[in-house]
Amino acid sequence: MGRRTIVLVVALLLAGLSAFAVWQFLRAVEDDVKADIEVVDVFRANQRIEPGVDGATALTFIESSTTNQEFLPPAAIVDQEALNELFVAEALTTGPISEGAIVTTDMIQSVEEVIIPRLSDTIAPGRVAVAISPSQVAAVGGFVRPGDRVNIVATTAVDVGRFLETITDEDLRAFFFGEEEEPAAPEVPVDEEAGITPEEALAAATPQVFDYTETVLQELEVLAVGAFVREAPGEQPGLGPLGGEILVFEVTVEQAERIIWIDKFTDVTLVLLPEGYVPVETEGVTGDDIFSIVERLQRELENLEARSGG
């Protein structure tokens, strides 16, 4: 065996001894660390558990696990029997339990201990809550959120004949408008050859029913949308439509009466308002604003006047 070979063998032996010594040292350190670690049994959620879930259902999402005694929460449940006693159908989870979280006793309460919030507690003094259920499209595509402010726009078919009957009836006029004197009849040319009265001429030149759209209430605050309430809107990580939910408004008593009537007898559309919106007065929109009906009526009246020799 040559000299170089002997040197190489000795070097390899020394390297092996050094590696073994290092391994022994690290193993000793690991044993010392493990000696100071006390592992205890715990229970963890294997998926997110929402608040308000009954204990029996929540129990199906909990599994056994372990943790270092040093990191054990004070109220951690470490016994299967204790877990089964707490997570029963008559109990509810008190808050969201994250996936992987160690289950503790304060994550579950009996139904008697749970304080159920009331929507009425969030209403300001002197105001009331009233609800409507518009479609998703009518509710700004479903993007209305608790705390938003909206205008209510109503569309309905106005019966001119019935309105004229109301204002010409003394009792009805006094009841609805508080007026006693009959309003003056509008000046309408009379077709004497045809033998028609001014009222008949007006009726002939005026559509009996026309659709009318107007902003009827402005700056209404949305108290709740479905299960989401203004004071506690819940977790909404991204802006997405809530859908055609029931919307609850916080309004005055008079506004509540108007909303109830509007909801029953008109088609309702909501208009979402930006911050700093200033209410504006509107005259509403009729078919004439879209289709120029008044111009046609004016031509009819001019023809009527020409035939009457006016």
Results as ranks from 00 to 15, higher is better:
E199L: 14
R307Y: 01
A194F: 00
E70K: 14
A15I: 10
F228S: 05
G310E: 15
V278S: 11
I102D: 12
I260S: 13
V7C: 03
V225K: 08
E30T: 13
L26P: 11
V268Q: 01
P279H: 10
Y212E: 13
L59F: 02
P125V: 06
A45W: 03
V111A: 11
V103T: 05
Q255D: 08
V114A: 15
P51E: 01
A185Q: 11
Q109K: 14
A82Y: 01
G238P: 01
N84K: 13
A201I: 04
R27H: 09
A131R: 06
I102P: 05
V278D: 13
A75I: 00
T286D: 06
D31K: 12
F228W: 12
A101H: 00
P198H: 11
D79A: 03
S98R: 05
F175L: 02
P237E: 10
V39N: 07
G100K: 06
E219Y: 04
N46R: 12
P73V: 06
I97H: 09
I62T: 03
V22L: 11
P189M: 07
I49L: 08
A21T: 14
G195H: 09
F71Y: 07
G100Y: 01
G141S: 13
A76G: 07
P274A: 02
V190R: 13
L223Q: 10
E305G: 05
N84S: 14
I116C: 00
Y212T: 11
G16D: 07
D263F: 00
W23L: 15
P96I: 15
L223P: 06
F265M: 11
E179K: 09
N303D: 12
R258F: 02
E250R: 06
T269W: 03
